[in-house]
């Protein structure tokens, strides 16, 4: 991993398990969202999002279906632009650099801000090894075979998959179980050494044991990465995240708005907004 200022702070123990936004001290905020609006053609999907996403922490996005949390997540690495007619206003800053600035290449944004999807999507024609190596070999990068071997092993270890697949790296990625495939996709994402990993309901297609493995992995991954995760599972958000953002649509429907954003303890323990309280206690949504 690149030795960043942040990494050193983690190593020296300045970070606490559940950091408090007010006591973040001198740490930089990796991802900062200011006045973000996303439109698809005439459809206003999310409105006026302001959010400072803490580095080396897990931020969970919760809210009922259609509240714009997935659109918001995808707007953080410009994946929503795949949908024709997508338009964005406002700022998303990665270490102070606006990822929507005219001269910014979305391809490079996505190398710094990776993504893991709802249903595992390993490349079906590739082996386990090639799946992990797929991102590294992109954009004309030259890397020696032994270096590549090292990165693949490191990424698979990082995704807690190495011990299960080290004897069949040449086997097809599609031959793994659902939970293993999802961890393969996480290995593929971290192999390119991003700053931020976005996860769109990464465990919703998995059984409880595989889900547990992913949640354990989140705790490991946040030592090195900033993680933003969309989840429909309240317990998952409560267990695995440090911060929680609650999204909801108004009484007139979209756009979705950020209703409350705070530490997970606060959101689930003593939410300050009535809608948030109703949602996390299961009274609606």
């Amino acid at each position: 991993m690149p030795e960043t200022e942040l990494g050193q702070q983690i190593a020296t123990g300045t970070a606490v398990a559940t950091p408090d936004p007010s006591s973040r001290g001198g740490r930089t905020t990796h991802l900062r969202v200011k006045g973000l609006n996303v439109h698809y053609g005439d459809f206003h999907a999310v409105a006026d999002i302001n959010m400072d996403i803490a580095p080396n922490a897990v931020t969970a996005l919760i809210g009922s279906s259609g509240c714009g949390k997935s659109t918001f997540l995808r707007s953080l690495n410009r994946m929503h632009e795949l949908i024709p007619g997508a338009r964005t206003e406002g700022l998303v800053e990665l270490d102070g650099q606006d990822i929507y600035a005219p001269d910014v290449d979305p391809v490079l944004v996505r190398r710094k801000i990776g993504m893991v999807f709802q249903s595992p999507n390993p490349f079906p024609t590739m082996s386990i090894y090639d799946n992990v190596a797929a991102g590294i070999k992109l954009n004309g990068s030259r890397i020696s075979r032994s270096e590549l071997d090292g990165v693949v092993e490191w990424a698979l270890k990082g995704a807690s998959l190495w011990d299960e697949v080290k004897d069949r790296l040449k086997g097809p990625g599609a031959g793994l179980s659902g939970g293993q495939q999802q961890r393969l996709c996480i290995a593929r994402a971290i192999a390119v050494q991003p700053e931020v990993i976005l996860m769109d309901e990464p465990a919703s297609a998995l059984d409880p044991i595989a889900t547990q493995a992913i949640e354990d992995l989140l705790l490991e991954l946040k030592k090195d990465y900033t993680i933003v995760i969309v989840t429909h599972n309240m317990q998952q958000a409560a267990r695995a995240s440090d911060y929680t953002a609650f999204f909801n649509v108004g009484p007139d429907g979209p756009p979705g708005r950020l209703i409350e954003f705070d530490t997970t303890q606060k959101i689930f323990g003593a939410p300050s907004n009535e809608q948030t309280a109703a949602y996390v206690t299961g009274r609606f949504g």
Binding site: M79, R110, N121, A134, L138
Partner: peptide, 17 residues
Amino acid sequence: PRKLIEGALALGATRWE
């Protein structure tokens, strides 16, 4: 499959890649 296309682009692949 759309999920494969998205998977590749999310890795930072160009359209041709």
